[in-house]
C-alpha cells in the first residue's frame, strides 16, 4: 500500500496531506485524553502501535505470486476507536519512509489516508456492525481487521487511479488495474491480519471472558 516517493503528482500529494492532517490532529488530541484519563490504557496503546509496527514489516507471499504486508491498524481502532491510529500509523509510515525507502515524504499524506485513516475507520465500523448484529467478539474482531486491511489497499488503488487514469477507460479502468495489483494480492493477507488480530487481542487481554476483553484493554476496567 506504499505509494513510492515521488510517484504522486505534487497537487495530489498536497491534497492528501490536507485531507489527512485533521485526522492526525484529532488522533493526537484523543491520545492525550486517553493517557490523561485512563493511565491503565497506556500499555494497550503502546501494544497497538507495536502491532502495526510488526505487521507492516512482514512481507508475506500471496496467491498472485507477489508479496505484500498486512497493516495491523485494526487492533487499536477496535479498542480505542479509529482516530488514535492516525497518529500510530503515521509513526510506522515515517519509520518506513525514512529508513527503508518504502513510501515517502511526498506520499506520506496519501499513504496515511489509506493505512492510518480509511483502514482503521472501516475496521471500527465493521466491529460496531458485527457486535450490533450479534456476532461474537472474536468473529467481529476478525472481520473488522480483515476488511480494514482490505480497505487500505483498495484505497491505495483508487488513489493511484485518480492520479493516473487510463487514457482509454479513465478512472474506472485504472482502478481495476491498480486494484488487481493491490486488492487481489491482499485477500489472503487480510485474512492473516484478521486471524493475528484475534490472537494478539487474546494474548493481551489474558484469561477473561470475551465480552470483558475490550473494557480491560481500553483501561476502563481491571
Amino acid at each position: 500500500m506504499h505509494i513510492m516517493e515521488g510517484y504522486l503528482p505534487a497537487s495530489h500529494a498536497i491534497g492528501w496531506y490536507a485531507v489527512s492532517a485533521p485526522f492526525f490532529v484529532a488522533g493526537a488530541l484523543k491520545i492525550r485524553k486517553i493517557v490523561a484519563e485512563r493511565p491503565e490504557a497506556r500499555m494497550t496503546l503502546a501494544a497497538s502501535g507495536a502491532f502495526a509496527f510488526v505487521l507492516s514489516a512482514l512481507k508475506i507471499p500471496s496467491v498472485t505470486g507477489s508479496c505484500s504486508h498486512p497493516t495491523g491498524t485494526g487492533l487499536g481502532a477496535i479498542i480505542f476507536g479509529p482516530s488514535v491510529m492516525a497518529v500510530l500509523g503515521v509513526i510506522v509510515l515515517l519509520f518506513q519512509a525514512l529508513l527503508l525507502a518504502h513510501g515517502g515524504l511526498t506520499t506520506l499524506g496519501a499513504n496515511a489516508f489509506s493505512m492510518a485513516i480509511v483502514g482503521p475507520w472501516v475496521a471500527w465500523g465493521i466491529w460496531k456492525l458485527g457486535r450490533g448484529v450479534g456476532l461474537s467478539v472474536a468473529f467481529s474482531v476478525f472481520f473488522a481487521a480483515m476488511l480494514g486491511d482490505l480497505a487500505t489497499y483498495v484505497t491505495t488503488a483508487l488513489q493511484l487511479a485518480l492520479a493516473y487514469p487510463d487514457p482509454a477507460s479513465g478512472f474506472i479502468g485504472a482502478a481495476v488495474k491498480f486494484g488487481s495489483i493491490f486488492a487481489f494480492t491482499q485477500v489472503p493477507l487480510a485474512i492473516v491480519e484478521g486471524l493475528l488480530t484475534v490472537i494478539v487481542m487474546d494474548a493481551l487481554a489474558g484469561k477473561v471472558p470475551d465480552d470483558q476483553k475490550l473494557r480491560i484493554l481500553a483501561g476502563e476496567a481491571r
Binding site: M1, H2, I3, M4, Y7, K59, I60, P61, S62, V63, T64, G65, S66, C67, S68, H102, G103, T156, L160, F178, I181, F182, T185, Q186, P188, L189, I191, V192, L195
Partner: peptide, 21 residues
C-alpha cells in the same frame, strides 16, 4: 497455511508496491 500455500503455488514474489510503480 495461508503464508505457505502461495509459496508452493510459485511466482516471483516481488513487492506489490513495486508492481504498481
Amino acid at each position: 497455511v495461508l503464508a505457505v500455500v502461495p509459496l508452493l503455488m510459485g511466482g516471483e514474489f516481488g513487492g506489490a508496491d513495486g508492481a504498481a510503480a
